[in-house]
Design a protein around this nucleic acid. Structure first.
Lengths: 205, 205
DNA sequence: TAGATTGTTAATCGATTAACAATC
DNA sequence: TAGATTGTTAATCGATTAACAATC
């Protein structure tokens, strides 16, 4: 499946296509045109066709795109055709929010354990100690670590995660973390988003 | 201040510059070169100079950029030189996380009230009923509404927010919301970020 | 002064838009 | 078949990179 090169600009749009196609499928809709997609998602029809063209022909001239084919294609490209084992590191507000996020499980992300500096319980998990993360990873498979600790310890904990052998970090910690080239980091910088919002408010006035 | 046009690509980078410059200031550092900035932030030195050039000369040849001037400039451009009155709509996990997010207050975002469908208490706020939002906005100034409700009611609540006269929405609700042209929406789509992460994991294998 | 580094122009690269033949 | 809509090429636009004179 992952044969062709997909441009970065297109990759960024894939999740939005996928989410919208899921929604259409739920509504029982069978096909969609590039024009309809473009209208809803605020892209252009050209852009949609250029994007879809990158992963080979998924549409039919005169008809449009078949929802179930499109969904399957996007799901495969995004790597959502498998399960991911996840640990949450940091059981504060963000860690809790992620643990309770319903979409998480539906998409195949399975929370295996939660770590913190304080023992306790979260959902139906006994919170484990961060110092036990390394030994945990020795016996259990972990694909993704959710980094949800305070910013002053984020780098240290990131280093622990990296050394433990976990290859992907979903970083909520509000600081850029330095890890080796082959560790994948995807950031949620809430403050950056808020700054963009205040920029836009300010610009309008 | 907001005289020159700043390109969208540059705008997206502004929060990262700002965050890093704050960090340097805290460390007592007085100047920084485009090269140093580029190394840390994974931009290129050319890019940094092109970006900064857009808001007029803030550097000095042979020296670099003065941290305090740079910080002040970025702060002004981002609109962080004032306070914003914020209401949180939805007191679930995400609403709680935002309410407790420490950076929030430091940056001048002031939580004035929290709304939900269930009464209760969060931090030191008595949770108000969502149906009272409109009357609340009639007497109180609100610049930003944080939309943190379940996805199935997100559009309805967004419409209530919009009709109440609030002009900016920080949307955590995992669905695209439709509002009028002059309402500013900034989205945090956690699932999109997660999909990009699984895409990158899958691509590497 | 000499070295360093900006500010800015020009060249390159990538992404978006426009257009239309192919074809369902 | 006729109408609709894709797939794809070519044109345009915007962003990044390279280069270097200006100058601190």
């Amino acid at each position: 499946m992952k044969t062709k090169f997909i441009s970065p600009a297109t990759v960024k749009r894939l999740p939005r296509y996928y989410r919208y196609v899921l929604q259409l499928e739920k509504q029982g809709i069978k096909k969609v045109s590039s024009k309809e997609l473009a209208n809803t998602l605020d892209f252009t029809a050209s852009q949609v066709r250029q994007d879809f063209c990158q992963f080979g022909s998924v549409g039919q001239q005169g008809y449009g795109y078949d929802i179930s084919i499109l969904k399957e294609t996007l799901l495969n490209i995004l790597g959502l055709n498998r399960e991911y084992d996840v640990v949450i590191v940091g059981a504060g507000n963000i860690g809790k929010a992620v643990a309770n996020y319903p979409g998480f499980k539906n998409d195949g992300f399975k929370i295996k354990a939660i770590f913190d500096v304080e023992p306790g319980k979260l959902k139906n998990y006994d919170i484990k100690m961060i110092e036990d993360l390394t030994s945990y990873v020795e016996t259990e498979n972990v694909d993704i670590a959710v980094l949800a600790v305070p910013m002053d310890v984020a780098q240290d904990v990131a280093t622990i995660i990296e050394k433990s052998g976990i290859k992907a970090i979903w970083n909520f910690s509000a600081v850029d973390i330095n890890v080796s080239e082959d560790t994948i980091v995807e950031n949620i910088f809430m403050s950056d988003s808020l700054y963009i919002l205040s920029y836009m408010i300010d610009k309008k006035q």
